[in-house]
Computed example of a mutant assay.
Amino acid sequence: MTNPYSGGNDDFPRYEPTDHPEDRPNYGQLPSYGGSHEENTQGYVGYQAGQRPFTGKVSAVDAVSWAFRTVFGNWKLWILGALALFVLSIVFVAIAGGINAANYSGSEEPTAGSSVSQLISTVLSLVLTVVIMRLALFQIDDTRTGWGYLFKNVRWWQPLVIMLVIGAVASLIGFAAVGGTVYGLLNDAENMTEDEAAAAVLSVMGIMGVLLLISFFIQPFFSLMQWFAADGDSVGDAVKKGFQAGKNNYGQMLLLAVLNFFIIIAGCLILGIGLIVAYPVTVLAQAHMFRQCAGRNTLPQV
């Protein structure tokens, strides 16, 4: 007996495809958030699929607001950490001062001890900056971030290279602008009248003021580069993406710089003690602003 549904043969009946979800080729696959499932994703170490990309409006005020809430909400890490950093800096300055005093030669030439202490200070400052940047990015992604996250998955050389290059370029520009005037002032100070010396000092201060003003208006173009590098991008990609993100969000980046400036000033006015709150707030605000500009996750894990 033949199968009545076979059309005259014994083949099994054929069913046309439907639009049911279970009939679709991608049924059962997890959604991809910003390509984070792909192996070649340029996200930072630990970037998970459940962390959604930022698609809202970039806001410096939102970044600062989040930073204040986070600093007080996780005070054991950020406030106590800033306090510990402040104490360690005092200890280091005291040790460096003792070394310089022990090696003082009576001349104005820098001693070997002072050069070594200055080099150590620069290296420690760069290392701590990279560690704190990584910690701030962790804080955005995970509310459980604490002391155990120190030195975890830190990307070292990429952000360091960018910071060193930016610092070197800024130093060269500054030296080219005021180096000759300062050199002449130091060498001819004895032959100058008081009016000439005052005019030379005012000239140096004026040039430095102009350079600071220019740097304020151009800093949005390069201040995000090291954050891209710390968040997992290569040096080349970090430079390109950092410039583009700063250009696209120029106004909000300037606003953040102004807000952070007044936060630091307010911290200094409270006998300097306010800096243990002001400093972590500015760092976290920069991290959150970076994630907004980069279109990356700004929501913590739950």
Rank of each mutant, 00 (worst) to 15 (best):
A229I: 02
A285R: 00
M205W: 10
L211W: 12
G209I: 10
F262M: 09
P220D: 12
G232D: 05
I265V: 15
R296Y: 06
A198G: 11
G251H: 01
A197G: 09
F228P: 02
A294I: 03
A238Q: 00
P280I: 06
A229K: 04
Q292N: 10
I273S: 08
L212C: 05
L224I: 01
L202I: 14
G209S: 12
I273H: 04
G209L: 12
V283T: 10
G246Q: 03
Q292A: 10
D231T: 00
Q292P: 08
Q292E: 07
F216W: 08
A200E: 15
K247L: 14
S234E: 15
M289I: 09
L254G: 05
N249F: 02
V235L: 04
S223L: 01
G206F: 05
D237M: 10
Q252S: 07
A199R: 02
A257D: 14
D195Q: 14
N249P: 00
L256G: 02
I264R: 00
V281K: 06
D231N: 14
I214D: 09
I214S: 09
I263V: 14
W227I: 01
G242Q: 03
K247I: 04
L269M: 14
F262L: 13
Q286E: 09
V201H: 10
F261L: 14
D233A: 13
D237Y: 05
E196A: 13
K241Y: 09
A287Q: 04
I265H: 11
L224H: 12
M253Y: 02
D195C: 01
M208N: 10
L259N: 04
A287Y: 01
L224A: 06
F228W: 10
L271Y: 11
L202Q: 12
Q244L: 15
N248H: 07
L256R: 08
V277L: 13
A278D: 11
R296T: 15
V210I: 15
Q244V: 15
V277G: 08
G295N: 07
G274R: 14
A200I: 07
L211P: 14
S203R: 06
S234D: 15
V281C: 13
V210F: 09
A245H: 07
F217Q: 08
V235R: 03
L256Y: 07
Q244I: 15
M205S: 10
N248I: 01
R296Q: 14
V258E: 12
S203V: 00
A200G: 11
A198Q: 12
F222E: 03
G272P: 01
A198T: 12
I218F: 10
